[in-house]
């Protein structure tokens, strides 16, 4: 067992876990944050995408112990049902989800794409979404939602460590 302390959505989470605990397991089982989904568990589908120190990663392919001391943001830290993050609102507006399973990962990756200034055109957004699978929507609404946030609210996607 190992003690892991991670600031998740601004709240310090300190838990004794097995060394082999994946970050996604830490988030779901220790922190009770089940918005982050496990899809393929093989680093392909992107449903488990969260931000570690401002960078999008796949939490099924990283041990919690590797990010001991880091800051993690999950879908629960982005917005609230009564106060959606602009990316969440854009996904709703553009019908960028159907079953919803990939959505938290898509939104976390969408925020990362805008943060890095990579939402420059449709082709680039699609390229940047290579690590996120959606089996319902055909991606059109997802791409439109990300492009809209890049146009209208790019500052909402900045990470805490980014320059103003």
């Amino acid at each position: 067992m190992i003690e892991v302390t991670i600031a998740v959505n601004g709240i310090e989470q300190r838990h004794q876990v097995e060394d082999r605990t994946l970050l996604v397991e830490f988030l779901r089982d220790q922190c009770g944050l089940t918005g982050t989904n496990i899809g393929c568990d093989t680093t392909q589908c992107g449903c488990c995408t969260v931000h570690v120190d401002g960078r999008a990663i796949k939490s099924c392919t990283l041990f919690a112990a590797q990010v001991d001391g880091a800051e993690v943001v999950t879908i629960e830290g982005l917005g609230q049902p009564e106060n959606l993050h602009p990316m969440q609102a854009a996904f709703r507006r553009h019908h960028a989800l159907q079953c919803g399973y990939c959505t938290s990962g898509m939104i976390m990756q969408g925020v990362d794409i805008v943060r890095r200034g990579r939402a420059v055109d449709e082709a680039t957004i699609r390229h940047e979404l290579e690590g996120n699978f959606c089996r319902c929507t055909g991606y059109q609404g997802i791409v439109e939602a990300i492009a809209e946030v890049a146009r209208t609210a790019p500052e909402s996607c900045k990470a805490s460590g980014d320059a103003a």
């Binding site: 992107g46 995408t49 999008a56 990663i57 796949k58 794409i113 690590g131």
Partner: peptide, 9 residues
């Protein structure tokens, strides 16, 4: 190489 999330790690 691979996709963005993998490139960060």
């Amino acid at each position: 190489v691979s996709h963005p999330q993998v490139r960060n790690l």
